[in-house]
Design a protein around this nucleic acid. Structure first.
Lengths: 160, 160
DNA sequence: TCTATTATGGATATCAAGTATCTACAATGT
DNA sequence: ACATTGTAGATACTTGATATCCATAATAGA
């Protein structure tokens, strides 16, 4: 259970775009070189971000990428979901086992027939965990990380 | 990014053991049949749980598995970490890239040389997310789920 | 002690996903 | 037109999850 490297590249790429906003479009070459990853691979990742409306791509001479929206409206959760997909963290594979029924439908069936389709209690706990995670990731934006980096730099220079 | 099926089986197996505590040892055959999974596969999972001191195994006639500790001392987090491993959810693969340095060491190097080895800000956010997840999973025990299942059953019967 | 029962650990096979690259194609500005 | 730059498809490689089989070790009961 780990986030893929693609997610890592996507997040760092967006931070680079934010920091370079004033410079206009950033080419995939520069981006790939900065992150230390091949152009071909990063292209796939940037395509996903584009398809989801997080960045804009401009082909042609002096083309490249730029943010499609302000960095403070781009949350970690959104980026992660674009790259990792939106499947649930946990799927109960015991749907037809005795065990699963014990924890949900069987009891409902015997005592309260209308209550079919109720969820496995294990899954309920895991869904709660996922919601917890999402809440946190929704609260953190690309802009927040950039601000932190700049403040840090500022803090250091002013101390000298 | 998803929890493996093994985790699902492990959690359900532990719940079955908890519910059957009074019946003494539970054989791997019964366990596997209840969960709807092969004996050979479930064996590997139970072995891990045994090696980590979550269950006890007794070989020989009338042998089988039982909980090594009270179910209210077995947290979801523990079970998940045994099965999934204890690697961090997020690893920054940009350790030697310009981007990474921008977010951590480069600034520190220029302005405050002693501050080497400071972490990437992206990773800090992700580590925070992981801690959030762990906090939640630590608060939920196998016993809690079993209690919920039994209360539900009780609630239904008393209503009739 | 012998035997049936049961868990253990190693070897292995299969499959899906992540990682990574190359190439032909399309769009854009000069 | 033409050089530049992103897009999309095909493909190869690696890794991890899933799953099974078999030989081995340990135990209880006759």
């Amino acid at each position: 259970m780990q986030f893929s490297k693609s997610t890592d590249y996507a997040l760092h790429a967006l931070i680079h775009l934010t920091l370079s906003e004033k410079d206009g479009h950033i080419g995939i070459k520069e981006l790939a070189h900065t992150l230390g990853v091949s152009v071909s691979y990063l292209s796939k990742i940037m395509s996903k971000l584009r398809q989801d409306g997080i960045v804009r791509a401009v082909p042609g001479v002096n083309g490249g990428y730029e943010l499609a929206r302000p960095a403070d409206e781009i949350t970690f959760l959104e980026v992660i979901q674009v790259i990792e997909g939106r499947e649930q963290l946990f799927e109960c594979s015991n749907l037809h086992s005795q065990q699963h029924q014990l924890l949900s439908e069987e009891m409902a069936e015997v005592h309260l027939p209308k209550h079919r389709g109720s969820e496995c209690l294990v899954k309920k706990v895991m869904d709660g965990a996922e919601e917890q995670l999402h809440q946190y990731l929704r609260q953190h934006t690309i802009q927040a990380v950039v601000d932190q980096a700049l403040n840090r730099q500022h803090g250091f220079t002013s101390k000298k």
